[in-house]
Every structure is written in structure tokens, then in C-alpha cells.
């Protein structure tokens, strides 16, 4: 019987579901942060699940499985970003989905949330991923480095640049003293 090639998995579908189900919401949340809108996030997660379903054997050998799923999600996000990087997509301020999904009714909260989504879209995919995982999802530096398969120093570098860009976009301007010192232009001046 050696050497027989089988394309059919012997794993029952319900086992696959029980492995994947607990992680889908986290993956969706990350996908949403990467992409900034519900439909794109759903498409990315669906794409990921299809990819995973085709690799049941790999999935069943992993414990824990979540880091691998997060890696796959990130790679698929980067791939999708490359494919449509020429299509600049702005999230409209009157996006109904955003209002519906907001857990608070405050108009200010909704406005700020949309602002974050719009400004996140202006970051590089790497910066978006690092900020999503570290600042929003709260993963450790080691976990982010493992998920994105980057050195810790690279993660910190993307984190710093992404934060700097977002602070600027959020209009969290540096104070006058620091501007005078040139700190935000990379020209450090001793006191």
C-alpha cells in the first residue's frame, strides 16, 4: 500500500470546524483592522478559510493553530494589498456599516473611529499589521514578530514609523518646543 496517493482527507469536516470556529472572530477583527471595512474583511477571512480547508492535514498537525492562521491571514492581506495597491480606496464618512457596527451612539466616537480607519489605510501594509496586532489587539512583541515573520527590531521600526505617521494624521501635533528642537525631524539637539 506504500506510495499510494490519496487526495481525500480522512478527517471529518466537523473536526475542522471545531478547530477553526474559536478563532474566526479574532481573524475577522484583524482582517477588519487591516482593511478598514466589513466586506473586505469578510472576503479576506473567507479566502483564508478556503486556503485552510485545502490544507487540513497541515492544520491538524499544529498546536496551537492560531499563530499559523494569523500568519496566513497576514500573508493573504499583503497579497491582496499588492493586487489592488493602484486602487486607492477611501472609506466614505457616511459609510452605513460603520454606524451600524459602532458600539457607542456618540457621534464623536463614530467620527473618530472613521478617522482612524481612514488614516490607517494610509499606512504601509507592514505598519498597519504591526499596529493592529500590537496596539489594537494587544499581542506581545514576540507574538507579532512570529506572526509577521519579522525580526523584533523590524517590528519596532514599523511600529514607530506607523505611530509617527498616525499621530501626524490624527493631528496630534508635536509641541512647539520639540519642533524648535527638531526632534520630530530626526535632528536631536541636546538640552
Amino acid at each position: 500500500m506504500n506510495g499510494i496517493v490519496s487526495i481525500f482527507s480522512r478527517t471529518r469536516g466537523d473536526k475542522l470546524e471545531s478547530i477553526l470556529s474559536p478563532h474566526i472572530n479574532d481573524l475577522y477583527s484583524q482582517a477588519y483592522c487591516y482593511l478598514g471595512d466589513k466586506h473586505s474583511a469578510e472576503d479576506l477571512v473567507q479566502d483564508l478559510l478556503l486556503y485552510v480547508c485545502k490544507r487540513k492535514e497541515t492544520l491538524l498537525t499544529l498546536d496551537p493553530v492560531k499563530p499559523w492562521l494569523m500568519q496566513c491571514l497576514y500573508h493573504r492581506f499583503v497579497d491582496s494589498h499588492r493586487k489592488r495597491k493602484r486602487q486607492v480606496k477611501e472609506v466614505p464618512l457616511d459609510n452605513e456599516d460603520l454606524y451600524m457596527e459602532s458600539t457607542e451612539t456618540s457621534l464623536e466616537h463614530q467620527y473618530m473611529r472613521e478617522k482612524v480607519i481612514q488614516d490607517m489605510a494610509k499606512l504601509t501594509p507592514e505598519q498597519r499589521a504591526v499596529i493592529t496586532l500590537f496596539d489594537i489587539e494587544g499581542y506581545s512583541l514576540e507574538q507579532v514578530a512570529q506572526t509577521l515573520q519579522m525580526a523584533k527590531g523590524t517590528v519596532k521600526s514599523h511600529l514607530h514609523r506607523g505611530r509617527k505617521r498616525l499621530k501626524s494624521l490624527f493631528n496630534l501635533q508635536p509641541n512647539r518646543e520639540n519642533e524648535r528642537l527638531g526632534i520630530y525631524k530626526g535632528k536631536y539637539t541636546r538640552e
Binding site: Y28, S29, H109, K115, V116, I117, K167, F170, L172, P174
Partner: peptide, 17 residues
């Protein structure tokens, strides 16, 4: 400024499926 940044970024909440 960094606290404000963290406050802003954490507004990115996502309604679960």
C-alpha cells in the same frame, strides 16, 4: 500626545461576527 494616540487607535473596535 502618545496617550491621545493610544486612545484614538483603540477606538478601532470591531463588532464580532
Amino acid at each position: 500626545e502618545h496617550r491621545n494616540y493610544l486612545s484614538m487607535i483603540q477606538r478601532f473596535d470591531v463588532e464580532p461576527l
